[in-house]
Amino acid sequence: MHDNVFDRYREGGSLLHRLSPIVKVVFTVVFIFSNAILPDGAWLAFGLAWLLLLAGSQISGLGIGFTAKRSFIALPFALAAVTAIFSLPGRTLAEWDFGRWHLVATDAGMLRFVSIMVRSWLSVQGAMLLIATTRFPDLIHAFEHLRMPRLLVTIIAFLYRYMFVLTDEVLRLMRSRQSRAASLPGRKAGGPIIWRARVAGNMVGQLFLRSYERSDRIYNAMLARGYEGQMRTLNRHEMAAQDWLFAALAAAALLSVQLVGRFPLR
């Protein structure tokens, strides 16, 4: 049931799907990097970066609006950035006194705030496109090729395999808690907060023990198949011509985004 909730991968055979995961990972990181170093208010460059995203969505066969739908996940964090409006010196737009804070909204602050939001909005969509067109196990292999420590790669692979299994266990625990959380009419259900926290804590403890015991069984299953402390994986990687081509085009595109951002046409 949580296939849809947890699996962000969208099946497909597009060029983007078939591209080497390493190229995709590197491109995504460079894309986000490029957004981060664009100056505040480089609207044309931001627009170009957005066009790149749209092109990516189109090529992937997911449809142009695909990444936009979930792209506002970072919105709550805007609350933290709102204060940027009042933190930069510049032409005063408005002033408020709010308790002990004297808030001066400036044009520079406004510019900074909007730029932060745009950067974040673009970057999150880049990551979404990556995850929608790349199976997570292939991503894990890409990390291995990109020299992430082997132990960490292995932990992430286990995490990916077992988060589904353990989430199921959590759901079962929560359902059994729910089904026992009865209350008499007119009385508040759930008991005092300490008690509720203790129930949750017991569930966490329960889950810990089950997980611990499961790791014993998995260890045995690994031993039975010849594991002796070294994880070995088979994970060939060859760059095809189209991978190089894509990498070159993508690099050129991001370079022009930077050029436009730094030397605005006037």
């Binding site: 997570f136 196990p137 894990i140 692979a157 286990f158 990916y160 395999r161 077992y162 299994v165 499961r214 069984r217 998995i218 045995n220 299953a221 690994m222 039975a224 198949r225 010849g226 594991y227 002796e228 070995r232 994986t233 088979l234």
Partner: peptide, 25 residues
Amino acid sequence: LVFQNPDDQLFSPTVFEDVAFGPLH
């Protein structure tokens, strides 16, 4: 040796990786 709970036996993300685990090791 095949264990009772396949969720303990299949510990890799993909089927291929799991079936390859024994021969690789």
